[in-house]
């Protein structure tokens, strides 16, 4: 009986360790532990301040050193993550962000059309980014055609297949 309990405890411990390791791997997927909350709530930035193509282009664009360097250049900063950014800036290397939201190659999505013209809030597709303290490791929600079409029909915009597929 005692031996069984020990085994169960050992197994539980093993699962816990694996869980912690997996969580650490998932959290560390991005090269920098970017904190959206700090940028949006504390620094009072808007999404478009860094994702600059949101209102003008098809792709929102993921900011890289050109944008980050406008605020971060102290390689001696006390915050390790800022030091990492500043090092990338200092060495002129690209931050190897992993793209999380990927539109499949048979579908076309224009941020300009949805955000600038359609006045759709970023949160609709990307969730409450303003309270996120870790970077995205996976999309906020699965983007399905049903979901797109529900919104298109509610707003009475084109549901022609060509609106997205070409």
């Amino acid at each position: 009986m005692k031996r069984n309990s020990t085994l169960i405890l050992l197994f539980a411990g093993f699962v816990l360790v694996i869980g912690i390791v997996l969580a650490a791997i998932l959290n560390d997927e991005q090269p920098i532990r970017y904190n959206h909350e700090k940028h949006i709530q504390d620094a009072d930035l808007e999404c478009v301040d860094c994702h600059r193509n949101v209102e003008t282009g098809e792709r929102a664009s993921i900011p890289n050193i050109e944008t980050c360097s406008e605020c971060h250049d102290d390689t001696e900063d006390e915050n390790e993550e800022i030091r990492k950014v500043a090092t990338y800036v200092d060495e002129g290397k690209r931050i190897p962000w992993k793209q999380v939201n990927v539109v499949p190659d048979y579908a076309f999505f224009s941020h300009r059309r949805h955000v600038f013209l359609g006045k759709i809030k970023c949160e609709t597709c990307h969730g409450n980014v303003a309270s996120m303290v870790t970077p995205f490791s996976e999309p906020y929600r699965e983007i399905t055609m049903d979901w797109c079409l529900d919104c298109h029909q509610d707003r009475q915009v084109s549901s022609d297949c060509y609106a997205c597929h070409r």
Binding site: Y106, C161, R166
Partner: peptide, 8 residues
Amino acid sequence: IVAQIFPQ
């Protein structure tokens, strides 16, 4: 326009 929807 006569559409041809490739993924369909």
